[in-house]
Design a protein around this nucleic acid. Structure first.
Lengths: 153, 153
DNA sequence: TCAAATTAAATTGTATGCAATTAAAATAAA
DNA sequence: TTTATTTTAATTGCATACAATTTAATTTGA
């Protein structure tokens, strides 16, 4: 690529993904508002509905978020009565996150979220599936780099 | 999709894009640190290197950011001596952002950023181009929705 | 003309997001 | 065992993001 083109915004794949991610969460916002959740709170609940009674560390690994983000977020969800935060009796370092009855019940209302958002977007199923698989590929391509950084290489 | 699967994290295209966007900016971070820029500051500079002496509004439209994000960000870049902020004489409502000599000079160092990041990622050119075009398609699919929201429809 | 509506930034308030540090608990090693 | 290391959350500090409001300037319309 020429030195003229290499820094053009429209040629930056990073910016394309960054902009899409923001546009997508913007699309979710009004739908999630009905559940009283922000987008990040929503994906945290998704993870918990799939697997309950997990530590902050495990939750963070699945969501790619650290305790600096999760601790305040989980405190807010606790304040809303959706979950409880309690130290693991077997290992006091760990904090176990458990859904409350209200937290489990909210799943029923959340069931219609993906459909609602999909209908509001101008996206068709084929595009959506293609994007998901592409992002999966990209993530596996990027993850080794992140892991190596973690190990200090 | 079954009610079991519809809320699974791995089936959420939104989460795939969201996670990739974060991973990508993480990849840029060490490279941009050498230029003294954060990722958002970097894309702001990309936009300005392409087109100088623009208003906050125009910059925001190109970056999909509003004044709430841009005002403090531009003040930081001004403090670094990379640009100047001055009201437009013709329309005092507008603030014109102009690159300083240092801001223009920084472009030379930035020229090697895309290549550096690309080499550190495990991504090949084909994947990158495919993703960029996919994100472009997605953005055009989502933008009408955002525009309609803007108009209050 | 001149009040009403619109526009552009800035400000305020809330919620991430992450690096770096701290504190407490558990594990490893001497 | 007793210290050193490691692990897990919480905390701190900084930088986004964005909705909603405010302020100042401009444009519209009666």
């Amino acid at each position: 690529m020429s030195s003229e083109e290499v820094l053009k915004l429209e040629n930056q794949t990073c910016f394309a993904v960054y902009a899409c991610a923001k546009e997508i969460t913007r699309l979710y916002q009004p739908v999630l508002k009905e559940l009283g959740l922000t987008y990040t709170q929503y994906i945290a609940m998704l993870a918990l509905w799939e697997r309950d009674a997990v530590s902050v560390k495990e939750l963070g690994e699945r969501l790619y978020l650290d305790s600096g983000t999760l601790t305040p977020l989980l405190k807010k969800l606790e304040a809303q009565g959706l979950l409880t935060r309690a130290r693991d009796a077997g290992d006091e370092r760990q904090l176990l996150i458990r859904l409350s009855a209200a937290g489990k019940a909210l799943r029923e209302k959340a069931l219609e979220v993906p459909e609602k958002v999909f209908c509001q977007s101008g996206v068709n199923v084929e595009m959506m599936l293609k994007i998901r698989s592409q992002m999966g590929e990209l993530m596996t391509a990027l993850q080794p780099v992140a892991a190596a950084d973690q190990r200090g290489e």
